[in-house]
Amino acid sequence: MKERRNIISKGRQEFDRDLGRLEAELILMSGLVEKAIFNALTALKNRDLARSRRVIDEDDSVDEAEVEIEKSCIELIRRQAPMAGDLRRIIASLQVASELERIGDYAEGIAKISITMGNQPPLKELIDIPRMGDMAVNMLKRALEAFISRDASSVRALNVSLEKDDDAVDDLYAKVQADLMALVKSNPDNAERATYLMWVAHNVERVADRAMNIVERARYQATGEVGN
């Protein structure tokens, strides 16, 4: 009896290894989308169209990573019929992969806007949008760290802190919108370029929102609580 309890079965060890692999796939995917957001905004700022095109091409790898994670999760559910913490971990991983895939799409969207702008210089010097981008990527990194920790108190603490960051991103977004609207009002010819930047800012704001969604998934994984 004692011996049996102390030895975790081979099957269970294999399951733990698979869960570890799933986590590694998520970390890699998160790295890809962080890089994509950074590259998309840097390319926009520097008017580097080749770099924007690379962001668009590389989004395929993000999509593939999501498909692989989805397959791994389906396989684990089918094979292991997971319960309790295992089930929450797999479900939350599926959800996080989907959030990351959407963030990848925002990066691709920014890159496409940049290409549409072509050789036109941005309407105004890009200061607030890259700041929003830095904050959003930082939120994403911390949200994923909380997810990996699977620890309820870390997730709760981070949630409080990230809500403040999310508010700060929202405030910057409002400021960018106000600045751009003022430029349009002063000269209607600015409308097209202002709209481009408005869309870029919108995409960055959504990245921060998705990071908050990841914290919510991390909370579900750690505590079983669903919803707000």
Binding site: R5, I8, S9, G11, R12, F15, P82, M83, A84, G85, D86, L87, R88, T223, G224
Partner: peptide, 18 residues
């Protein structure tokens, strides 16, 4: 019990650790 057990031993049992 199967979604979010309160006792760590339940978690260990339903996830096949014991």
């Amino acid at each position: 019990v199967f979604g979010n057990p309160k006792d760590a031993r339940t978690e260990a049992y339903v996830t096949g650790r014991i």
